[in-house]
Design a protein around this nucleic acid. Sequence first.
DNA 1: GAGTAAACGAGACGGTACGTCGGGTCTTATG
DNA 2: CATAAGACCCGACGTACCGTCTCGTTTACTC
Lengths: 206, 206, 206, 206
Amino acid sequence: MHSRTPASRPGRPRSAAADAAILAATREALVELGWSKLTLQDVATRAGVAKTTLYRRWAGKNELVVDAVAELFDELRLPDRGSLAADIEGVVLQFAALLDRPECRSGLMAVVAESTRDDLLRERIRGSIVERQKRLVLEGRARATERGELPPEPEDEEEAARTVDLTFDVVAGAVVHRTLVSGKPADEAWVRSFVRVLLLGLAAPS
Amino acid sequence: MHSRTPASRPGRPRSAAADAAILAATREALVELGWSKLTLQDVATRAGVAKTTLYRRWAGKNELVVDAVAELFDELRLPDRGSLAADIEGVVLQFAALLDRPECRSGLMAVVAESTRDDLLRERIRGSIVERQKRLVLEGRARATERGELPPEPEDEEEAARTVDLTFDVVAGAVVHRTLVSGKPADEAWVRSFVRVLLLGLAAPS
Amino acid sequence: MHSRTPASRPGRPRSAAADAAILAATREALVELGWSKLTLQDVATRAGVAKTTLYRRWAGKNELVVDAVAELFDELRLPDRGSLAADIEGVVLQFAALLDRPECRSGLMAVVAESTRDDLLRERIRGSIVERQKRLVLEGRARATERGELPPEPEDEEEAARTVDLTFDVVAGAVVHRTLVSGKPADEAWVRSFVRVLLLGLAAPS
Amino acid sequence: MHSRTPASRPGRPRSAAADAAILAATREALVELGWSKLTLQDVATRAGVAKTTLYRRWAGKNELVVDAVAELFDELRLPDRGSLAADIEGVVLQFAALLDRPECRSGLMAVVAESTRDDLLRERIRGSIVERQKRLVLEGRARATERGELPPEPEDEEEAARTVDLTFDVVAGAVVHRTLVSGKPADEAWVRSFVRVLLLGLAAPS
DNA sequence: GAGTAAACGAGACGGTACGTCGGGTCTTATG
DNA sequence: CATAAGACCCGACGTACCGTCTCGTTTACTC
């Protein structure tokens, strides 16, 4: 294993404070300017840092924004509200609130768009954002299985993973589409309808 | 009603051929370069047109790409395969194929990202792309209701519209998320699983 | 000889009023905008004329401005003030006043500058402006010779022409340089000093 | 006195070589293209420099060309040929040769034309070109006075300055007009005639 | 506590695209 | 035919941002 903490390399160490300041400044700039008008010089200035310092740590705008946005998603929590439906409603509302924050709206879609032509960037997004948050699905599923609300997990691990992926794509996709494409709020009423369809299907009697 | 066909305005009329050539050139450039490296000068050159001609018709890159991509979505058709599930599978596969085309991948997410800070652009996207394709949901729903696969539409018109919106967000969102965010193919197996969840719910016995 | 008055050519005849309006509009625009910011579209609009009409009559900006400025020089008159010195002073003051008008300042030097790379333009300037005004030198010289202020003209015609040219270059050049390059007014005091040098030479006792 | 050499300002210092390369490239482009077809991008490319570097140092085409042309004038020298007439003839011939160089012809008149509407530019021209070269008049005058060819300088300083200015306007103006407006060469014969008039006046017996 | 090596702030630099503007040509319908 | 209107192609404009570089300075660790 290569030295992760290189036993203090020679020379002046990188400022730890700078990283945090830069990410915060990036989010601040995203709020005020949005992705396309955000400039790295502006971020550097807001962070009280030189542009070179910024380039020493991130390869470019995309990578920086991925990291800045990724931190936001770690705030998500799966509440225990007693039933699967209520639990999902809770986390979906949090997710909707997150997507309502301008730094998230502007940044997330932009890097996803860039990632369609940049495989490294896609992997970075998947690693930093998508896969990290599948923990929520896993946790909810486990809790629901325990409660008897869902059938036991299939023994086939791949099959189980596919179900998690599908669930995540449906939930995340629906909320993102509602919020950013349709441009309507994912409010409590909508979330209730959505979770109903998710659990019971479209064909269920209303 | 104001004159829609202004009985020949003075001066040389705009070239009708130019519009089509520009939109085609835009898609071509999206395929080769992707959104972020696409330049209007390049599009103009491909279309055999001056840059000014392009700016006379569209306000900028965003508006141009929306129109170029919107045309693609009109190719979608709802096949009649005998059952609701099969119909949805059919159209979802078409949608997935569309999102697999580079001109669509690069362009669509980018303009959605821009639209988070530009209300006019969002409306343009909604009008040109989203609302236009809800026809597919309406048609599928009507056909399924006729077949007895879905309960009759609610009498409340707003309620009905909400259901259509929700269905569209779930379907479009899931496919987009699978394809562009998770970066995995929306192949037949995945579509079958997805439609099963959509119609019967997550809790359904497998 | 080709038909100068074409006995009514077929089709609509050219508007005679347009020419005058365009030249006047050109001078007006020169006053307000100067050479470099003057646009042909603007001139056309001021003249109440379409741009095509303008291009049908002049090859471009340079030719148009030469004609517009040339008209101004025809106002110059050689006054009879009784002595050669006084006559020259009179015409030089007129010339200075002309060069003080913005339409002249801006236009004249600009076309001269262009003419350094465009032989047709130089000939046009010479024909329309320079040679036309040598009449003043000829007239003044004749009058002075008659008065006995100058020796009789040399019999050699070329020699005589050379003297006229030299005189014109010295007078016109000095005034232009004073006014446009040195940027100081060619007022009465300066003109008096200048004419003294011109007639008596630098070495003359003051 | 404020720091002229600011003890090394922060940041990368400006490339000294770039300035010279740009001015040389400007003259080269003036020769090949002339003022009106000269583009800053082309100059930058010739100089092996980015367009931005050029704009960082000069406000625009006018300022750049003034500096590029001004350097040429510093080559002028007043030869000592033994008499005032011969000295003037010598420097006038140099001046004529200078005005025969395409980079000078195109550039000089163009910036003078622009300066009629731009006071800062006029001052720049005066400072960089006109006033600098009055040294030649001063030197010639001093030498001639010493030789007894000219009466001693007036004690009134303003009066003396006025004479210098007048001489400069007459000499420079005549040569410029002969060369650029009349479009004929200021060759030895012409220069001899001119200097004769300058020193002895028009009325002198030939 | 001097030496070394890297991080750092500042800003110049080579590029590239932007959106605008003017020149000059053309294509309409109208006079 | 000439004209008014305006679209069209072309190319330069001046600006902005990118990502790299080159300075002088600062801050640790090492010998």
